[in-house]
């Protein structure tokens, strides 16, 4: 009996890392292969953004800034798309821009995936506009807080800004009812809070990679309305959106889909942590007994 027990402890103690690697690989491959989906529940910090968009009267202006690049697309893109879908569905005006040079290609992806598929009736320049990227990092944010038209004299295609109906009553950022920065570094959510949200008293919400999110919690909820952290944050927004508007179920579940492998892998890691501790305590108890 004691013999058998020791064996298990010994096995657990000397577990080969390659077994862990194999299980992690399976934890990711199997859910992907079998399209395993878990139900996602949104947390208050994400719901805050959803509720804010939900509460805005039609015609309110919402700015989304694309401050990320291809390397964080898996985490950032679903957030941007879910929010844009929500904004357009609520008949809010959607303004898109970028503080990162790598942002506009992602904006294009969003236009293809969201606007051209689900909102073909929305008119460019009336319901949504793509302002594009301008250099200057936080300096740009600072400048458009005071004078947006001074910085953006044209849209991304070079058409004069005066030609667009939805730009007529926009002079600076304070005309926006909500700013959402989807970002993955500097400049990003922090800069939007520091250079637009705080000085202009404009609600700012953010969507960031999981690595960055812990560094942004300090701003919530005083300076930051809400925060989507990593794929989970994106999935939570999608879940909130789909539960209220089931018609988006087909188009708006990319993050929820990707959460399958994440959840399983997470559970595997949790199991390993538990097993590791059981082995550790079992060994310690045995050692104590031996001493006694």
């Amino acid at each position: 009996m004691a013999e058998g027990k020791r064996d298990i402890v010994e096995v657990l103690k000397a577990i080969d890392r390659r077994i862990i690697f194999l299980l992690i690989a399976l934890a990711v491959i199997l859910p992907l292969a079998f399209h395993l989906v878990f139900s996602v529940h949104s947390s208050p910090i994400v719901e805050a953004i959803f509720d804010k968009v939900e509460s805005l009267p039609p015609g309110s202006k919402v700015l989304i800034s694309f401050d990320y690049g291809p390397s964080t697309v898996p985490e950032n893109q679903p957030m941007a798309e879910a929010v844009a879908r929500h904004v357009l569905h609520k008949d809010l005006k959607l303004y898109m821009m970028a503080v990162w040079a790598t942002g506009p290609p992602q904006t294009e992806v969003l236009i293809r995936n969201v606007i051209q598929t689900d909102f073909q009736d929305k008119v460019y320049g009336v319901d949504w506009i793509n302002l594009g990227y301008k250099a200057g990092n936080q300096g740009l944010i600072n400048a458009i807080l005071l004078d947006l038209k001074g910085m953006y004299t044209t849209d991304i295609n070079g058409t004069g800004i005066g030609e667009f109906e939805m730009m007529r009553d926009v002079d600076n950022l304070t005309d926006m009812s909500l700013i959402i920065c989807i970002g993955s570094g500097f400049p990003g959510v922090r800069e939007w809070v520091q250079f637009a949200g705080d000085p202009g008293d404009i609600p700012v919400a953010g969507g960031v990679t999981a690595v960055e999110a812990p560094l942004l919690y300090p701003y919530y909820p005083r300076q930051l309305l809400g925060l989507m952290g990593g794929l989970q944050g994106a999935a939570e927004y999608e879940a909130a959106l789909v539960s209220k508007y089931p018609q988006f179920e087909a188009s708006s579940e990319q993050a929820i889909q990707l959460m399958g492998p994440q959840t399983v892998a997470h559970l595997v890691i949790i199991a390993f942590v538990v097993v590791g501790n059981i082995a550790f305590f079992a060994e310690r108890r045995r050692e104590r007994r031996r001493k006694a």
Binding site: F21, I24, A25, V28, F272, V275, G276, N277, F281
Partner: peptide
């Protein structure tokens, strides 16, 4: 990193000391 984050969790998150317990 996905693999290494798992192997590091397994190894490091053990209640060996008070500090390690808090980490865990």
């Amino acid at each position: 990193l996905a693999f290494f984050v798992a192997s590091a969790s397994y190894r490091a998150f053990r209640a060996k000391t008070k500090e390690a317990t808090l980490l865990l």
